[in-house]
Design a protein around this nucleic acid. Structure first.
Lengths: 214, 214
DNA sequence: GTCTATAGATTGATAGAC
DNA sequence: GTCTATCAATCTATAGAC
């Protein structure tokens, strides 16, 4: 009777420490490169104690990925509410999406690792489901923009959605690499990058025919 | 004296089998998930024989990545020779780049894994160098197009280069995922995808002001 | 060059005291 | 719930015969 309160309120006190440590280690080095001993040390507990909360290493990994999936999808819901014209909705989506990626780098890298995996599909479906919502929502914005005449109708919404997500993911993953190029000055201003990126998608980079002069 | 011929010509006969097997396994599962026993079995030799060619597992991994780096950079040289107008050079670059990615999926996934790594930089510099050439060459094409007046001058070449490479990488990596969407019909035609993608970059997706009617 | 056999260390997981 | 101690399996790497 007296345990009921703590059971629902504090369930997972040491459990959260384990998941937090495992989350960072799995994201940094991958599933097989991380030992239970390393997780226990990072969490400040003993290795055997982990097995009190999780039946085995796979169960722990799955719990980490499920938590990551829930956290990411919850936060990215904000990016998916589209109001106003398509151009504004696209800007909001892109900036919000990239901001959430950068806010949770461990979770995102965990997902990217899962997408790279081949062979045993440890939790591929979770990673897939995370992208599915984003993709569908983004395609919806573009298609509505086409139907309302704001966007041209001779392009594939799925293609442009792929481009936008790809632009955000490569920015997220290649910041350190891009930082080595002195000519790249958008590395530390993700919002500017995304606004300029969406502007390129919206306006295109080719000189308008009437303006050309060469 | 009689060994000289074979030394230069056939050097690395069993060595190549090992590297080929390791290349596929490392790309599929990552460094720590692959055991020397698995590599030996896949190569059809004994585990101890690997140590005759490579001093340890890290040396083998490095050799695999160096070979991958050399192979990728050699093939991608073709994508980097830009002739004619910038629009044509961009199309050629994109299609050629994506074709080379798809032709060597193992090597590319090996690189992507290395870019995801955090902590011990096993061979990060190799993966970085591979992208550096591509990036510089692509920026060069865009900048030349700007100087010759073919492209607008109010966009950042590095940003558009990032977008194009991101579009190719996400296509390469997400084909299986995109195949589950019935509305996506460019999954099996990479050249069409790339031509349409470059067209979006070149022309933009926003309705021209004089054509708008809503 | 290729193998079998094995050493030495580390791994995932369990037993049982507190 | 948390720990120490430990098992059995697996891993990297080596020794040494052929």
């Amino acid at each position: 009777m007296k345990n009921d309160v703590t059971a629902t309120c504090e369930e997972g006190e040491g459990r959260l420490k384990i998941i937090a440590a495992a989350e960072k280690l799995f994201a940094d080095h991958g599933f097989d490169a991380v030992s239970m001993h390393a997780i226990a040390t990072a969490a400040g507990i003993s290795k055997a104690n982990i097995y009190h909360y999780f039946s085995n290493k796979d169960a722990l990994y799955l719990a980490v990925l499920q938590g990551a999936s829930a956290a990411l999808r919850a936060r990215l819901q904000e990016a998916m509410d589209s109001r106003g014209p398509a151009s504004e909705a696209l800007r909001h989506f892109a900036v919000s999406h990239l901001r959430h990626l950068l806010a949770r780098p461990y979770l995102v890298r965990l997902f990217l690792r899962e997408l790279l995996e081949n062979g045993e599909p440890r939790a591929r479906d979770l990673a897939d489901a995370g992208l599915a919502d984003l993709f569908a929502s983004l395609v919806g914005i573009l298609r509505m923009g086409q139907e309302q005449g704001e966007l041209r109708s001779d392009f594939d919404p799925a293609l442009v959605a792929t481009m936008l997500l790809g632009a955000n993911v490569i920015f997220f993953q290649s910041r350190d690499l891009l930082r080595q190029y002195p000519e790249v000055h958008f590395v530390d201003t993700p919002e500017e990058y995304d606004l300029a990126m969406v502007e390129v998608l919206l306006q295109g980079i080719r000189q308008n025919p009437q303006d050309s002069s060469s």
